[in-house]
Design a binder for these strands. Structure first.
Lengths: 145, 145
DNA sequence: CCATTTACTTGACTCGATCCAGAAAACATG
DNA sequence: CATGTTTTCTGGATCGAGTCAAGTAAATGG
């Protein structure tokens, strides 16, 4: 899994450009990046890059399956490079921090509805909401001895 | 479970107003209504009601637990009166139509992550994405004999 | 029926995301 | 390396969902 970034792109039949390499790099370093974060990080590295370019790149990659897009309630969309397996997410209700959780079965859609009402289901998205360790501490400060 | 609507509201310690009764009625008739749909239906019944009033009412009820709010990816938030049990949803990728699915366990959070990373999880939201029966037909028209 | 508390109105505004038309850059060739 | 075609990038307008803030109105409880 240690492809050079360029090969990753070419392998998916996509052109190699500076913005794309930069976006890929951001996604690797920030496994649950918002589009906005990507824009800022890419600009920090390359100078001016349009928001549009970033959105295009991300949308293309999502289509191709190189990147997965998730939309936890109340948060802007997050993009992650772990796209192949079908893992789930833990989202903090307070700070929004998001963590991966491995899927027990690993096979898509990993769960099947008890009654599918005639739908052809291709994906089950599971999101756990709660409090991250940090926010737990802030809300219930440990009783000082 | 056949409370008069007013009692439902009073029981939750909330005032009874025309807008509220109308909103409640819409939610009962449209089990997965968007805020926008509620606004339009309520206006159709009562005349002028501000968008803000609707959002306030819905937010209050969500807080109180009278109503559940879900946010399927790519769709505006949906509100439903089935708030107590912890059922799940089938969402059509094409038309957005949403259907309830009973939860196998019924107990919240109904699923527990394989590794909770220190989070205190209080809810597991499961959304199944696929194609509703209607959209399946439109996309794969039956081979004409 | 008055006071208090809670709800509603209005209108501007934020924020994430998307659309559009034109300029620029990457790739496949000769 | 010059050329043309295709794809990507720029900049700015625009959209839709949702929120904020200040003031007005209406529901409860004495």
């Amino acid at each position: 899994m240690d492809f050079a970034p360029e090969d990753t792109l070419r392998g998916a039949g996509l052109r190699v450009t500076k913005p794309r390499l930069a976006v890929l790099d951001v996604l690797v370093q920030h496994p649950h990046a918002t589009a906005d974060l990507v824009v800022h990080k890419v600009r920090a590295k390359l100078g001016k890059v349009s928001k549009q370019a970033i959105y295009d790149v991300l949308a293309t990659w999502v289509d191709v399956g190189l990147v997965r897009r998730i939309e936890p309630a109340g948060l802007p969309a997050l993009f992650e490079t772990r796209a192949g397996d079908n893992h789930h997410h833990l989202v903090c209700r307070v700070c929004g921090h998001t963590t991966d959780v491995d899927c027990a079965t690993g096979v898509r859609p990993c769960l099947t509805p008890s009654d599918d009402a005639g739908y052809s289901v291709d994906e089950a998205e599971v999101v756990f909401y709660g409090l991250c360790p940090n926010c737990q501490l802030k809300l219930e400060p440990p009783s000082p001895t």
